[in-house]
Simulated assay, not measured.
Amino acid sequence: MDIRIAFALVLGGLAVYLAYRDPMLGAALGIGVVVVTLLLALLKE
C-alpha cells in the first residue's frame, strides 16, 4: 500500500465521520470533493 493511498483512506474516513456528526458539513465536504475531482480530471487532459 502506497502512503498516498493510506492518507486518502484516512481523509476519507475522517470525512465520513464528520458527515455523520454534522450533515451540513458532510454535504459541503461532498461538494468540495466533487469539484476538486472534476478540476483534476480537466487539468489532466
Rank of each mutant, 00 (worst) to 15 (best):
residue 20 Y to L: 11
residue 41 A to F: 05
residue 36 V to D: 11
residue 35 V to W: 03
residue 5 I to R: 04
residue 7 F to H: 13
residue 8 A to C: 08
residue 31 I to Q: 00
residue 14 L to I: 15
residue 11 L to E: 07
residue 36 V to R: 07
residue 16 V to Y: 12
residue 13 G to E: 03
residue 36 V to K: 09
residue 38 L to T: 02
residue 16 V to G: 04
residue 7 F to T: 06
residue 20 Y to W: 15
residue 27 A to Y: 02
residue 16 V to R: 02
residue 8 A to F: 14
residue 12 G to P: 01
residue 38 L to C: 05
residue 23 P to C: 00
residue 24 M to Y: 12
residue 37 T to K: 01
residue 2 D to M: 06
residue 11 L to G: 13
residue 41 A to H: 02
residue 15 A to E: 02
residue 4 R to G: 11
residue 30 G to Y: 10
residue 20 Y to M: 13
residue 26 G to Q: 04
residue 31 I to S: 06
residue 43 L to A: 04
residue 37 T to A: 11
residue 17 Y to A: 15
residue 38 L to S: 03
residue 15 A to L: 06
residue 41 A to K: 12
residue 24 M to V: 14
residue 14 L to W: 10
residue 22 D to E: 13
residue 32 G to C: 07
residue 10 V to W: 03
residue 45 E to T: 10
residue 5 I to F: 01
residue 44 K to V: 08
residue 36 V to T: 05
residue 12 G to S: 03
residue 42 L to F: 14
residue 43 L to V: 04
residue 29 L to N: 06
residue 45 E to Q: 13
residue 30 G to K: 05
residue 22 D to A: 10
residue 33 V to M: 10
residue 7 F to Q: 09
residue 43 L to E: 08
residue 22 D to Q: 10
residue 30 G to I: 06
residue 26 G to Y: 07
residue 35 V to P: 03
residue 25 L to E: 10
residue 23 P to Y: 00
residue 44 K to T: 10
residue 18 L to R: 04
residue 30 G to M: 09
residue 17 Y to W: 10
residue 32 G to D: 00
residue 8 A to Y: 12
residue 42 L to G: 03
residue 16 V to M: 11
residue 16 V to A: 14
residue 10 V to S: 07
residue 24 M to R: 14
residue 34 V to W: 07
residue 13 G to M: 05
residue 24 M to E: 11
residue 35 V to T: 01
residue 13 G to D: 02
residue 2 D to K: 07
residue 1 M to F: 00
residue 26 G to I: 00
residue 41 A to R: 08
residue 42 L to W: 12
residue 38 L to N: 01
residue 40 L to W: 14
residue 1 M to I: 01
residue 40 L to E: 15
residue 24 M to K: 14
residue 33 V to D: 01
residue 26 G to D: 08
residue 42 L to T: 04
